[in-house]
Structures are given as C-alpha cells and as structure tokens.
Computed example of a mutant assay.
Amino acid sequence: MWKRLDHQPKIKAGDGPQAGQFKELSSARGPVMPHPLELAEFQSFQVLEDISHHIKEVGGQLVKKVNAVFQMDITKDGKTILQWTIDLKNGSGDMYPGSARLTADTIFTIPEPVFMELVLGKMNPQKAFLAGKFKVSGKVLLGQKLERVFKDWVKF
C-alpha cells in the first residue's frame, strides 16, 4: 500500500506521481512457499523430486496397489515450506508440487527432519505418529500404503 507524501490541492490532467512522492506503508505477505531457488536448500525437496521421478516410472503399478491421493505439507518452525501431492488413484499416478488438485484422501503435516527420517527408514511411522511427531488428517490408515511407496523408492 502506498501513501502520497506531498498533498497537492489540485492535480492537472497528465500530472502523475513524481519519483519519491510515494512511500511503502506495509509489505504484502510473502508466499507460503519459498522462492524456487531457495527450495534446493531443503533436503526434503530433493527427496520429493526423486520420489516424483520414481512414481512417474512405476506409477501404474502403484495406482493398482495404493488407490489414494496424499498431500504432504512439510514444515519448518511451524510454517509450511513445501507442499507436494502424490496421486496414486488416477491414471498412471502422478506426483507434483502444490496442494492436491482433487480431494486428498490423507494429508500429512510433517516437520522436515521427521520427514527425512521417515522416508529414509530411520524412524517407524506408526511410532512417530503415536508420539505426536507429525499430524495426519483424513484416512489415517492409508498412510501404511504410502509407507510402501517410500520403501520401494529407498530400494530404487
């Protein structure tokens, strides 16, 4: 939002603001997601891209086994830094950045360090969920099917 610094009583046609006549009052809220160049800083971004490539290769098989849409909200300091959707319900499967285009069956809200431990198999997902390390909304039991996808990716 801008505020005029000088107060001209009359403005003639063709007169526009001159340089320095406006000052910024407040900055607009920044986007929820970081700038694309900053995404490379997050380990989870690189992992999610790898999983995305894997899903593009074997998605058809996974759709038959999983039949669900998952949304992953990766957080840092309580703020969402990454959001990805894993669609293993439609077509030959897909994984893309952003919120689910269709209704997600399950939404995971996971701090980045916990996400990394989960996908690398260093943490048991059920124990982590019960310990409150991440949140799940929607069909919680479908998370077990997603665990298989991550295990397949780790072997890949």
Rank of each mutant, 00 (worst) to 15 (best):
2 W>Q: 08
3 K>N: 00
3 K>I: 07
6 D>T: 05
7 H>L: 06
7 H>T: 07
8 Q>F: 14
9 P>W: 15
10 K>Y: 15
10 K>L: 13
11 I>W: 01
11 I>R: 04
12 K>L: 11
12 K>P: 03
12 K>S: 06
15 D>R: 12
15 D>Y: 08
16 G>I: 10
18 Q>K: 13
21 Q>F: 09
21 Q>W: 15
23 K>I: 15
23 K>R: 13
23 K>C: 10
24 E>G: 14
24 E>I: 14
27 S>H: 14
29 R>A: 15
30 G>Y: 15
31 P>G: 08
31 P>D: 12
34 P>T: 03
38 E>A: 14
38 E>I: 02
41 E>Q: 15
42 F>P: 04
42 F>K: 00
42 F>V: 00
43 Q>R: 11
44 S>N: 05
45 F>W: 02
45 F>N: 02
47 V>K: 09
47 V>M: 14
47 V>P: 06
48 L>A: 07
48 L>D: 04
49 E>M: 06
50 D>M: 08
51 I>E: 01
51 I>M: 04
52 S>D: 02
52 S>W: 00
53 H>V: 07
53 H>T: 07
54 H>T: 07
57 E>D: 11
58 V>T: 06
59 G>T: 05
63 V>S: 11
63 V>F: 13
65 K>H: 15
66 V>P: 03
67 N>T: 09
68 A>F: 01
69 V>N: 03
71 Q>P: 05
73 D>H: 06
75 T>F: 11
75 T>W: 07
79 K>Y: 10
79 K>E: 13
81 I>M: 05
83 Q>F: 02
84 W>F: 10
86 I>M: 12
86 I>N: 05
86 I>E: 03
86 I>P: 05
86 I>R: 00
87 D>S: 03
87 D>R: 03
90 N>R: 07
91 G>R: 06
92 S>L: 14
94 D>F: 05
95 M>V: 08
98 G>K: 03
98 G>H: 00
99 S>P: 14
104 A>N: 07
104 A>W: 05
104 A>R: 03
104 A>H: 06
105 D>C: 10
105 D>E: 11
105 D>S: 10
107 I>M: 15
109 T>M: 11
109 T>L: 10
112 E>T: 09
114 V>M: 09
115 F>A: 03
117 E>F: 04
117 E>M: 06
119 V>Q: 00
120 L>M: 15
120 L>Q: 13
121 G>Q: 05
121 G>W: 01
121 G>Y: 01
122 K>S: 13
123 M>I: 09
123 M>L: 12
125 P>H: 06
126 Q>Y: 14
127 K>N: 01
127 K>F: 04
127 K>D: 00
128 A>N: 02
131 A>F: 01
131 A>G: 00
132 G>N: 15
133 K>L: 15
134 F>D: 01
134 F>Y: 11
135 K>E: 11
136 V>L: 06
136 V>Y: 02
137 S>W: 12
139 K>I: 14
139 K>Q: 12
140 V>N: 08
141 L>K: 13
145 K>H: 10
145 K>G: 06
146 L>C: 06
146 L>K: 03
148 R>P: 05
151 K>R: 12
151 K>G: 10
152 D>I: 05
152 D>Y: 05
156 F>C: 00
